[in-house]
Amino acid sequence: MINMRLKFIKGPETKYISHLDLMRTFQRALRRAHVPIHYTEGFNPHPSLSFASALGIGVTSIGEYLDIVLDEDMSEKDLMGKLNESLPQGLKIVDAVVLRDRAKSAMALVTDARYSIELIFKDLIDAEKMIADFMVQNSIVVPKEQPKKNFETTDVDIRPMIRVINVLHQENLNVTLDCIVACGSKANLKPHLLLEALRKFMGDIFEIKEIRRVELYANIDHELVPLSLVDRK
């Protein structure tokens, strides 16, 4: 069996596809591409594939990850070529790496995510200063909906989950932020919640043009390493 990690793009055409639907889409694309995917043992076998992290609906990405297990050898290049021919518009594999034995799953590795967030402000503002003022707070408490508890809200402090926010680019009213936030099973900050906190802090002075996930990282010895570089064979 061969463990492989695929890095893929989720473009505007597929940004409204939910996590579960994306899973089914990949399963069918893998079938069409005749990728020799391994099936789990047991009563109800299913194809071995797992995503690093669910992406919010409406968010695009150039840094998604999918781990698959193959029964037979297939070169990275061959796999990418065949799978890309079988994927719908808006999904594209951009990297495939074979993992070493006993590699941790992408899902277990991921700790942080990088987002590029494009906002359009209603008036000219000093974005650098606003972000600096936002980040200097010791705690940033926002109400968060809990889907498992009937969407009741609970207050959470998101400040510890924000690693970096930089103003990447500003042109008149358009501001692009570069953010690194917690992502994974231990702590997870969705970009929409971050933007709600920003809105609460700044007032309702911007609209969201695009949220794009750029990369997913593992924290290896206090350093953020893109998942495609971890546990390579």
Binding site: T14, Y16, I17, R28, A29, I57, P88
Partner: peptide, 20 residues
């Protein structure tokens, strides 16, 4: 329609139109 309407509905996947 794509950028402004679909985020407002419960199942935007119904209206995408670019299925395989």
């Amino acid at each position: 329609i794509y950028e402004k309407l679909l985020p407002k509905v419960e199942k935007p996947g119904r209206y995408i139109g670019t299925e395989w």
